[in-house]
Every structure is written in structure tokens, then in C-alpha cells.
Design a protein around this nucleic acid. Sequence first.
DNA 1: GTCTATAAGCAGATAGAC
DNA 2: GTCTATCTGCTTATAGAC
Lengths: 185, 185
Amino acid sequence: MTPRTNARILTDTIADIFVREGFDGTSLNYLANQTGLGKASLYHHFPGGKREMAVAVYDRVSATFTREVLARLAGRGDLELRLTRMAQALDRFYDGGNRACLIDVFSIGGAREGFAEKLSEAVSYWVSSIARTLCEAGVEKATAQMRAEDVVISIEGALVVARATGNTEPFRRIIEAMPARLLGG
Amino acid sequence: MTPRTNARILTDTIADIFVREGFDGTSLNYLANQTGLGKASLYHHFPGGKREMAVAVYDRVSATFTREVLARLAGRGDLELRLTRMAQALDRFYDGGNRACLIDVFSIGGAREGFAEKLSEAVSYWVSSIARTLCEAGVEKATAQMRAEDVVISIEGALVVARATGNTEPFRRIIEAMPARLLGG
DNA sequence: GTCTATAAGCAGATAGAC
DNA sequence: GTCTATCTGCTTATAGAC
């Protein structure tokens, strides 16, 4: 039993490392040490090597984001409640500002090749998911797009600042202010 | 003549590479190819190797930022004019959104060790430089700090989004809106 | 100040036993 | 599915000639 569960735990462990160390900063030796597996065992799970591991990590993180964060936008309740729930989900997803975003990390160095399109689509999908929700609640299209863009930008920026300073307070402030900003406060 | 100038050109070339490839993604072979020097020649200029090159790059970029961007805040003219000049200087410094920020890049992977403190100070210095300027113009201290933080966050975020999507329009929008945001618009 | 040559070690990746 | 052992090439770094 639970073969898929073990695969998921393995991918999560690898994801943590890619997120902290970046693609180029992550070595197979380190992955082997941290997962408790030998390098050859990692290749059993990911025949394509480091690159395939990164793809598996990206796909898993991306799926989690859609399910845990973006799905809140389409939930029940009025607009403000759904935006607040998305904000709370973002706080959990990024571990209160302590976890980097793969969109940032994988857009640097050797990971770009092969991820460029996926990263671009991820940003667009995130922005347009928010914008669509605002539109459906009556916000004018261009305004909704701009607010959504601003909010995504502020999240990414707050994560950079948190990582550089070790201070997650600005991130939490951004999260808290997010619903009001999207509503045009 | 111009030994220092050549050293600066060399450091600028290396800086471009670190900014694009990250610390871990930058190899000495690549640096040698791009600078037109042999690896041994690079060690002549930077006996401490890759690490010393990164420090030289950071110090140079940091000095340029202080001189070209932050100095605009202390210039002549009323507050709005100085903020607009800072925004224009930021646009140039980040090449209209096409150039990554070292605060972002060096906070990932192997560069963190040895740069953590510098990066933290860089963010603090940037934020407090803006906040001080607002305070001197009569803005309440906590408000000034928050607005400055928000603006720095939005710049970092817009650079991430630009890098991930290849679209620099959000960055330019953030730059343009910056003076009004700081003035409380 | 630049070069060629080279060292020593680590990178990603594979073979084959169990 | 995991392991040990190994391969090849690239990594950082140095020695020493010019």
C-alpha cells in the first residue's frame, strides 16, 4: 500500500531542497543525503535525473497551489470572504513567508531552460484567476487585471524581502491587506 | 592608464553573468569565456576565486545603487520631483525590468552563506532611505516606513514577474505609480 | 597580466548485485 | 527498490612559463 504516498513524500522532500537551494545549487549527493536514499535509488524514481526531479517538483507544487490556493476563489460565500480565504491559503502555502516561490527560484540560471513557458503560464494563470473572480463580482476588466497583477507582484516581492532579511512581517502585512486591496480599498 | 577602469569593466561583465545565472549557476569556465580571459587571469584579479568575484560584484552594484538611485532622494527640488527622479533611476538601474536584483539572486543557494547580512542591510537601507525622505517631508513615521516597504516589495516582485513572464509592462507600471504611492495617492 | 597545463574533487549519471 | 562501485566530464583552484 501507499506507493503513491511515498512518492509524494519523496517529491515533497526534494521540493523543499530545490526551493531553498535553487536548481543549480541542488546536488544529487545532497538530495541523496536528505532523502536517505542512494543516488541510484533517486534515478529509479526519476530516470531523467535532476531535470525530471525538478519537473516533478514543479508539477506537484503547481497542483497544490491550484488546489489549496486558487480553489478558494471559486468557493462559496461573498467575494470578500473568498479573497480572505485565498489570502489565508497563501499564508499557509508560503509558510508565513518562510518558503520561497518556485516562480522566482526556477527563473534563475540553469532551470530557466525548460521552465520558461511553465513559469510564464503560472503567473498568467494566477493573475487571471484573481482577475476573473473580481470581474464576476462586477469589477471592470482592466481594473481587475491591474489589481490582480499588483497583488501577485506584492506576494513575490514580500517573499524576496522575507528571504533576504529573515523578517516575515512585511509578508504577513501584505497578506492581511490583500482582500481590501483587491476590493479597491 | 585606466587600470581601475578596466577592473570596473571586468567586474561589470561578471556582474551581468551572476545576475542572470545566479551564484551557483555561474562557472569559472563561463566567466572566462565571456570576459575573454583565462581562468588563471581571473584568479589574478580575484585571488579569492568565485566568492571574491561575487563580493566585488555585490559591492560594485551596491555602490552604483546608492549613487545612482538613492542619491536622487537627497537632491534638490520638492518631494514629488525627487521621488520621480528615484523612480526613473530605478527604471534605468534595472534596465526597464530586464535585469534581476542581486538581493533576490544572492539570497538563493550557495550565495546566502556570506551574503545574508549584507542583503538584509541592503533592504533595510533602501527602505529607510525612502522612509526618512518621506518623514522629512512631514509624513508620519510608521506610515512612511510602511509605504517605503510596500514600494521596495513591489519593485522586487515586479522584477520576479518580469523575469518569469518576459513581460516588463507590470514593472514599468509599478515604476510610474511609485511617486504617487509614496505620497499617499 | 596573461597564458597553458594540471591537479584534486565533485557533478550528474549508469551498471549490476542483492 | 535499494545498494556499492564506477564512469566521464566539469568544477574550483594552482603552478609556472612568458
